[in-house]
């Protein structure tokens, strides 16, 4: 069996103390141990962005991070965006602008967009396209996703955080 280490992290605002095998990625920890299956697995090489989560506010590919590396970190997943059943402005904008088709890339897109808006509350279209280029959408919703991000930026509801 693999070596394990005790890890403490805050996941979507909740403190978690877990014994984690050292050879498990943050993605596997979230999906398999914590049951947070909103974060998706696709390429496993940091190319598609489906597994994007926020670690201490920064968007990262959770498939390229060992869970033990997240010791002490604050993690936000797509499940942490809505508060009290109320969608975040970004989530609502994704619905309104048609930014989600099959939906498999959507959690990653939302997390990357959220981080982008935190860093740059008023991005241009090229900045959005650059900032989200690490999130593949095979349904081809890229323009609708950018529309949604622009709409939130223009409404001033920065980052989708209430």
């Amino acid at each position: 069996m693999a070596d394990t280490l005790p890890v403490e992290m805050i996941v979507n605002g909740r403190r978690r103390a877990i014994e984690v095998p050292v050879n498990v990625t943050l993605l596997d920890l979230l999906r398999d141990e914590l049951g947070l299956t909103g974060t998706k697995e696709c390429c496993d090489v940091g190319e598609c962005g489906a597994c994007t989560v926020l670690v201490d506010g920064r968007a990262v590919d959770s498939c390229l991070m060992l869970a033990v590396e997240a010791d002490g970190a604050e993690i936000t997943t797509v499940e942490g965006l809505a508060a009290d059943g109320q969608l975040s402005p970004l989530q609502q904008a994704f619905l309104d602008k048609g930014a989600s088709q099959c939906g498999f890339c959507t959690p990653g897109q939302l997390m990357a967009a959220h981080a982008l808006l935190q860093e740059n509350p008023d991005p241009s279209l090229p900045q959005i396209q650059e900032g989200l280029s690490g999130n593949l959408c095979r349904c081809g919703c890229y323009f609708q996703i950018a529309d949604a991000v622009l709409a939130v930026a223009q409404s001033g509801q920065e980052g989708g955080r209430k």
Binding site: L36, T37, G38, T39, T77, V78, E79, L81, A82, L87, Q91, Q92, F94, L95, G98, S100, G103, T106, P107, L110
Partner: peptide, 10 residues
């Protein structure tokens, strides 16, 4: 989209 809410909340 019907089913959209599920998609944006994971």
């Amino acid at each position: 989209r019907v089913g959209g809410r599920e998609r944006v909340t994971g």
